[in-house]
């Protein structure tokens, strides 16, 4: 009777002994790894989303500036030289955190035989420093 009772007790303990501890350790490692991967993936997603959104917005800023630039060049009085290597007086305000700069090519010789156009590079910078460039051409109206 005592022997049978000991045997049952031993079997009961055997069911939860040894392998359960190993399983729990392995499971902890696996789940920990999964959580790390999940958190890292979500972090990558969020940062990538922010960068892409800012890149798209910077592109829009560059486009808006380009449209305002064309208007500004067209508004130059006919009595004045139409071309300038210094920034044109563009009526445009970039959104908060964004900035726009232009790099203008040299002006053509202002005569009646030289094509009167000027390439410019518009650079829009996002709050995180991401830049979008847009190359445009303005011409004498």
């Amino acid at each position: 009777m005592d022997r049978r009772a000991r045997t049952r007790g031993d079997e009961a303990r055997d069911a939860d002994a040894g392998s359960t501890l190993v399983e729990v350790l392995i499971a902890t490692v696996l789940m920990g790894s999964a959580i790390i991967v999940l958190v890292t993936g979500m972090s990558t997603l969020f940062s990538s989303s922010i960068q892409n959104r800012q890149a798209t917005t910077a592109g829009l800023v560059a486009r808006d500036y380009a449209e305002a630039l064309v208007v500004a060049v067209a508004a130059v009085p006919g009595t004045d030289p139409w071309c300038s290597t210094t920034p044109y007086a563009v009526a445009y305000t970039a959104p908060t955190g964004y900035s726009v700069t232009t790099t203008a090519a040299g002006c053509p010789v202002n005569d009646t035989t030289t094509p009167q156009f000027q390439p410019l590079v518009i650079t829009a910078t996002s709050p995180t420093g991401r830049t979008e460039t847009l190359r445009v051409v303005v011409r004498k109206s």
Partner: peptide, 8 residues
Amino acid sequence: AAMQAAIA
């Protein structure tokens, strides 16, 4: 840009 330059 190409069009503007061509016009000029």
